[in-house]
Computed example of a mutant assay.
Amino acid sequence: MQVETITLQIPKTLYQRLVNTANATQRPIEEVILHALQVGSPPQWDDVPEEFQADLAALDKLDDYTLWQIVNSRKSAAEMQRYNTLLEANSSGTLTQAERLELMALRQEADLFVLRKAQAAVLLRWRGHRVPTP
Rank of each mutant, 00 (worst) to 15 (best):
Asn20Glu: 08
Asp64Glu: 04
Leu95Arg: 08
Met104Tyr: 11
Thr94Pro: 08
Ala105Trp: 04
Asn72Trp: 07
Arg100Ile: 08
Pro28Thr: 09
Leu62Thr: 04
Ala54Cys: 10
Asp46Cys: 06
Ala58His: 04
Gln16Gly: 13
Val71Asp: 09
Leu14Ala: 10
Arg100Ser: 03
Leu103Tyr: 06
Thr96Pro: 06
Gln44Gly: 12
Gly93Glu: 15
Leu112Lys: 02
Tyr65Lys: 14
Leu103Thr: 05
Glu88Ser: 00
Val32Thr: 11
Glu109Asp: 11
Glu31Ala: 09
Glu51Thr: 11
Tyr15Phe: 12
Met104Ile: 12
Thr94Phe: 11
Ser91Phe: 09
Thr21Val: 11
Glu31Pro: 03
Glu51Asp: 12
Pro43Leu: 14
Glu109Trp: 07
Asn23Ile: 15
Glu30Gln: 11
Thr85Arg: 01
Asn90Trp: 12
Leu37Phe: 08
Gln16Asp: 15
Leu34Ala: 08
Ala77Arg: 06
Leu59Arg: 05
Gly93Phe: 09
Asn84Phe: 03
Leu37Ala: 08
Ile70Ala: 00
Asp63Gln: 05
Asp64Tyr: 01
Tyr83Ala: 01
Asn84Thr: 04
Leu56His: 03
Arg27Asn: 11
Leu59Cys: 05
Glu109Ser: 00
Arg27Tyr: 02
Leu112Gln: 06
Asn72Val: 02
Ala57Asp: 10
Gln38Gly: 06
Pro43Asn: 12
Val19Ser: 09
Thr66Lys: 06
Pro43Gln: 07
Glu30Trp: 02
Leu86Asn: 04
Arg17Cys: 12
Asp60Ile: 03
Glu50Cys: 13
Val39Cys: 13
Leu112Trp: 00
Trp68Ala: 03
Ala22Gly: 10
Gln44Arg: 11
Ser76Leu: 00
Asn84His: 04
Glu99Cys: 00
Leu14Val: 15
Thr21Leu: 15
Val32Arg: 08
Asp55Pro: 01
Asn84Leu: 01
Asp47Pro: 10
Thr94Glu: 15
Glu30Leu: 06
Asn90His: 10
Ala54Met: 15
Leu62Met: 04
Ala98Phe: 05
Tyr83Thr: 02
Ser41Pro: 09
Met104Gly: 06
Pro28Asp: 13
